[in-house]
């Protein structure tokens, strides 16, 4: 079917050659990190001091997720063997997502205003209901 190769030139034309590392070692580190990210929040739930507990949860759950993602991108996807613009491209896309968050969060995360309040939010917010027994919008705030 294909004695002359279909992938003509796809690997020979330029491009950095991929250097293969010790993938099993990377995988073991990833598994250790996974265990930490599961155990961390469990430990945190036993901590009385709320800010500490929150810090432990966030750093083990999300800090380690970032580390794991970085390890996969670097060691498995070989981003360092691509052209320079590829990491820039990936980072640019992430920056756009932060931009979306920054632009939208002030509106989306707001649940009450001078003359309005989100009905769905009242239902879950006992504090608010205690202060506004008639369910009116929070004009006093």
């Amino acid at each position: 079917m294909s004695d002359h190769a279909e992938n003509a030139g796809n690997e020979t034309h330029g491009g950095h050659e991929t250097h293969h590392g010790d993938y099993v070692r990377v995988w073991k580190v990833l598994l250790v990190l996974l265990v930490v990210s599961v155990v961390g929040p469990i430990v945190a739930s036993a901590i009385e001091h709320r800010p500490t507990a929150l810090a432990v949860t966030l750093s083990t759950a999300f800090g380690i997720a970032v580390v794991k993602a970085y390890m996969v991108v670097k060691n498995f996807m070989h981003i360092q063997f691509t052209q320079r613009f590829v990491p820039y491209l990936v980072v640019t896309m992430l920056v756009f997502m932060f931009l979306l968050f920054a632009g939208a969060a002030p509106d989306v995360m707001k649940s009450e205003g001078r003359n309005w309040v989100k009905p769905g939010w009242i239902a879950e917010n006992a504090d608010y209901r205690a202060h506004h027994p008639d369910g009116s919008a929070g004009g006093a705030h």
Partner: peptide, 23 residues
């Protein structure tokens, strides 16, 4: 088969796919 960017076409395209998936 050309590779003016210095990257094989397939690898280049996959990274663009990933860029569009990120968003």
């Amino acid at each position: 088969t050309r590779s003016a960017s210095g990257m094989p076409t397939g690898r280049l395209a996959v990274w663009w796919v990933i860029a569009s998936e990120i968003v």
